[in-house]
């Protein structure tokens, strides 16, 4: 980061390094309840997996007590490991709303950051899954014309916060004078 010259090209119309960077931003954390939603969701998956394993084990038969102890012990260790990462993953998720764009970052080991300018958002969706409902949370998805993997989805927003953010984005979309079609 020590270099001062513009890497992209000479005689840039603007000082690129002076443009707002998404690196030094402070990100909003997701609502705390969302951590529980993540726990429930992941553990539900784990429970289903465990049930399948148990059914297979019983169907196979011939398992002694020690086998069961080892299996359950191993499974337990796996379960702990599995859950340890959830709060860590949760902590990496965050979003930031700037004057002209919105950014979402996530990923504990594999980092991901997506950034969408308001004048490229096609429309916005607020959703509520069954678990989020328990904790009074909603998720917001901003769609661009860039296709599925470029959509920005923020899970775990407080209900009214999600609606407010959506209204805010929609007001931004309509105020931007972008002419298409």
């Amino acid at each position: 980061m020590e270099t001062t010259d513009d890497l992209l090209f000479e005689n840039a119309p603007v000082d690129i390094r002076a443009l707002p960077s998404s690196e030094q931003l402070s990100y909003h954390k997701l609502a705390e309840g969302y951590l529980w939603v993540m726990f429930i969701r992941s553990n539900l998956f784990f429970i289903i997996l465990s049930l399948i394993a148990i059914i297979f084990a019983i169907a196979k038969g011939e398992l002694g007590l020690t086998d069961w102890i080892y299996a359950v012990g191993g499974w337990f260790v796996l379960w702990i490991l599995f859950n340890v990462f959830i709060p860590l993953k949760y902590r990496q998720k965050g979003y930031s709303v700037r004057d002209k764009d919105i950014i979402y970052k996530s990923g504990l080991f594999w980092k991901k950051k997506i950034i969408i300018p308001f004048n490229r958002i096609q429309h916005c969706e607020v959703q509520q899954g069954p678990f989020s409902k328990i904790f009074g949370l909603k998720s917001l998805t901003a769609f661009t014309a860039g296709g599925g993997s470029s959509d920005l989805r923020i899970g775990g927003l407080p209900e009214e916060g999600a609606e407010e953010l959506k209204e805010f984005i929609i007001s931004k979309i309509t105020s931007e004078h972008d002419v298409d079609s």
Partner: peptide, 30 residues
Amino acid sequence: CYQAGHQMRIPYISLDIAQQIEQYAMYKIE
């Protein structure tokens, strides 16, 4: 870089230049 119906991917570039691409693209779009 996502476009409508097209994507341009560039792998393994320095983070510095990735950020400059991001910043400049946002500037141009906005």
